[in-house]
Design a protein around this nucleic acid. Structure first.
Lengths: 343, 343
DNA sequence: CAGCCGATTAAGATCGATTGCACAAGGAGG
DNA sequence: CCTCCTTGTGCAATCGATCTTAATCGGCTG
């Protein structure tokens, strides 16, 4: 038995059906099928079945310059925020016959550049970037090359690129107003990397909402974590506690940062929510399983994926839509990590 | 400004360097570079840089029949077990210049078949399957087509396919012996889908270890969940409790099933671990954050990914390794969900 | 029955890179 | 000085499908 049975090509089908390869091509392609006599179509399709034809998308891609492949960059696959988004994207893309090529970058800019180069060499039809920074020069090159790009969960400060994400201003507002309505006045904020829009925008929203609630922002109650993960969140929050300013609640830039806060509070035997209320952001998987279950802001992540994919497909399809930012509405999920301040 | 600047091809580079395209090809390819005069190599590389050449891997793939692309199927991206495995795979593959195409199947066999067809059409160089069932006919077709396949986290009953996973027999043994050493004698088991090797093998190991600990297996203490997720775990465990047989501890087929048990126990006001000890499997992300922190079996998931990728690369490279099953050693992580039985 | 028209199908170029083979130039050896 | 190699480069075929252009076939009209 041969290790590898010779691949059958369109020529084999054509020979079997006693037609020219170009005719076989038209017969098998739904676009051009109407240009071939029905009887011939049937003969070609039968021939394709008997010889076991499987079209070679590499060859097709070379000729048509369309690969039906979309590339996606995410900063951290192990952040439970992303899997639902990716799922939404895959589901939407597969409807149109597109395949997703997913790459994890760990936030490493150099790696991102090299992955983008490789994807560009593979001639992906479009890119979904969940790794964008507020300033992300590589996007301009991509745009100049005519590559379709949609940002997911992030925006850039100054670039005409479509994006899809949760409405961060509204989301943080929900968190702040929830705490204020419980009676909190001294509220701290632990944010993430301000290089990312998620870092800066959420912070800005926090400051804005405090003000509109008539609370003055105390810079001593703001800490910044280098990354959106538990450990950086823990050290930022520990440092904030060590400053000594009193506060009764903390808004975390995302759920992982909130978990970091949990760790520090447990270490220092401060009870949540009795001595400290904590609000997260994203409502990641298991947010309801933590001790205590985390009050957080729910983002329709699967839908974000779906809309992002859709926007990209439209852009590829040539619909001349102006770059737009789609913001999906978040909602507050109250669990057991928030309560009225004790004093 | 043109929307899309014309792609530069090897011919453009050749023209710029005043050599024949074939020479340019050889100069840019490290394999064949030695066949070109160093001065010419330098000229070609300079030309490539000035015209901004980016090789077209589609065209290359057509000619060489190698795409440097690996496909992977996973049943459930939102199961935190998988992201670390995927990360290990990506890291290893990228070392050799390979790209991973990831697809989520939700355990849907039809979808798996169609995705595999699409990947086969895209001429992936190899496949990593985390979706294999004990009986998974599609693998035989792939093998017959000469496609390199490595199974991840699963095995098949009867197929000469290489696989990489944690050592399930040892892992379940650690769980059982831990409970026995705490004094438990009546131990229940909540397993997952026996169509998957992870379902059957862990159950078989559970039975075997009970016996070698001198405990007779009570079929009334075994329940099977349809999928490896919380809800099926919860209903299976609830049904098991409803049978009325007394037991003091439960081994869950994975951590998500254990979480399902948690939910039922909380609902029925049974305390973990005071009234019921629970052991999970996999040590997924956040297993230490649950209430109570889950005692479980840790699997070196990242390493599983790395080894699987490596095995596949070797197989592609033509190293004629016989199909082998690599089993990585698990370890017991004792947290707060297990304690001696009360009575 | 010649001629024309629309509908099908065949021919062959093409996408961009790789590769076996031919060939020229230059050096070594007799 | 001539033959035989070696080395470096050019030539042209090739991978498999698509697509433009040209040829062919039937039927229909006058």
């Amino acid at each position: 038995m041969p290790l590898e049975r010779r691949r059958v090509s369109l020529a084999d089908v054509a020979a079997e059906a006693r037609v020219h390869p170009s005719t076989a091509s038209r017969a098998l392609n739904s676009e051009t099928q109407s240009r071939v006599r029905p009887a011939t179509v049937a003969r070609v399709m039968a021939a394709a079945r008997t010889v076991g034809y499987r079209p070679n998308s590499i060859a097709r891609g070379l000729r048509t310059n369309r690969t039906y492949t979309i590339g996606m960059l995410i900063p951290d696959l192990t952040n439970p925020l992303f899997p639902p988004i990716v799922k939404g994207i895959e589901d939407r893309l597969s409807q149109d016959g597109y395949t997703l090529v997913l790459a994890n970058t760990d936030g490493d800019l150099e790696r991102e550049t090299s992955i983008l180069a490789s994807m560009s060499a593979r001639r992906v039809d479009g890119l979904l970037l969940a790794t964008a920074r507020r300033d992300y020069p590589v996007v301009h090159e991509l745009l100049a090359d005519g590559v379709r790009v949609v940002l997911v969960n992030r925006t850039m400060d100054d670039a005409p690129v479509p994006s899809v994400m949760g409405d961060e201003h509204v989301g943080i507002g929900l968190a702040v107003k929830h705490l204020v309505s419980l009676g909190h006045r001294r509220i701290a904020y632990v944010g993430g990397d301000p290089e990312a829009s998620t870092g800066l925008v959420r912070y800005q929203a926090f400051a804005a909402w405090l003000q509109s609630e008539g609370i003055e922002l105390d810079p001593g109650l703001v800490a910044v974590a280098a990354r959106f993960r538990e450990e950086p969140g823990a050290s930022a929050f520990a440092e904030l506690l060590d400053r000594g300013s009193a506060f009764t609640a903390v808004v975390a830039g995302n759920d992982l940062l909130a978990l970091g806060c949990y760790d520090v509070l447990r270490e220092r035997s401060l009870e949540v929510p009795a001595q400290m209320s904590v609000v997260g952001y994203n409502d990641i998987l298991f947010a309801d399983k933590f001790a205590p279950p985390l009050t957080t802001i729910r983002i329709p992540n699967y839908q974000i994926g779906v809309r992002a994919a859709q926007l990209l497909l439209e852009s590829i399809g040539g619909t001349d839509t102006p770059p737009m930012a789609i913001r999906l509405a978040p909602s507050l999920v109250v669990r057991a990590s928030t309560a009225p301040p004790r004093d």
